[in-house]
Write a protein that binds this DNA or RNA. Structure first.
Length: 206
DNA sequence: TACGTGATCACG
DNA sequence: GTGATCACGTAA
């Protein structure tokens, strides 16, 4: 009984499909600052407050979907509300949330978290000596959260990976914008101020 | 500042 | 097939 009640409460705070399926990926990237990314992998729950994101739109050159559908990016073309996970530099898993409507292949890259639950699990996965800095970067946080290719295409309404609103208040002025990292190939689009971070957070990547 | 790392993509 | 490239992280 008690267990059931808890389940219902938890599912209620999950961000709904309607959050992800809006048109404005830049707005969504901003709103994701302060939300909580959660994974449950092999029964181990980990979570963290999102403190850094980047927006990507299929209309600009920084985006994997800019040149159309390929084997790697196909889940970006699904309706918003699924995870897009890909391998970068042969080593690092990167996690995005797909947004917008089907075929409007926008996504938000999750770049950094402040750890909440399961910190001991994150330390174990990364073989770090402490929780310090283990989620301050897109490649590091996926390792800490246990995110890999098996998450690619999963619905964020499911029970493996999702995002919650825990009513953390983030004032508009508390969010910094800057250019996105590592997309020099994007020409002028590399100058778009589509990276967002929580001002003053020690968990933001360098 | 340098480079490991391996899947992916655009060539033919 | 093949080769260039890559939404990073760490060591130095």
């Amino acid at each position: 009984m008690r267990r059931k009640f808890r389940r219902i409460r938890l599912s209620k705070v999950k961000l709904a499909q309607s959050f992800y399926q809006r048109q404005n990926v830049v707005q969504i990237a901003k709103e994701l600052i302060g939300k909580v990314l959660v994974t449950s992998v092999n029964g181990l729950l980990t979570s963290g407050v999102i403190v850094e994101t980047e927006a990507y739109s299929y209309k600009e050159r920084g985006c994997h979907a800019y040149r159309g559908l390929t084997g790697r990016n196909k889940v970006m073309f699904e309706p918003g509300g699924v995870a897009y996970v890909y391998l970068c530099y042969g080593i690092h898993q990167m996690v995005n949330v797909v947004t917008n409507q089907r075929w409007k292949a926008d996504a938000v890259l999750i770049r950094a978290l402040r750890p909440l639950e399961g910190q001991d699990v994150m330390i174990g996965r990364t073989r770090a000596s402490s929780v310090k800095k283990i989620t301050s970067g897109p490649g590091k946080l996926t390792r800490a959260m246990g995110i890999g290719q098996n998450h690619n295409g999963l619905s964020l309404q499911g029970n493996e990976i999702w995002i919650e609103d825990r009513n953390v208040q983030v004032p508009r002025a508390g969010i910094a914008d800057s250019t996105r990292i590592g997309i020099d190939y994007a020409g002028d689009d590399a100058r778009l101020p589509w990276r967002f971070s929580l001002k003053g957070s020690e968990w933001v990547s360098k």
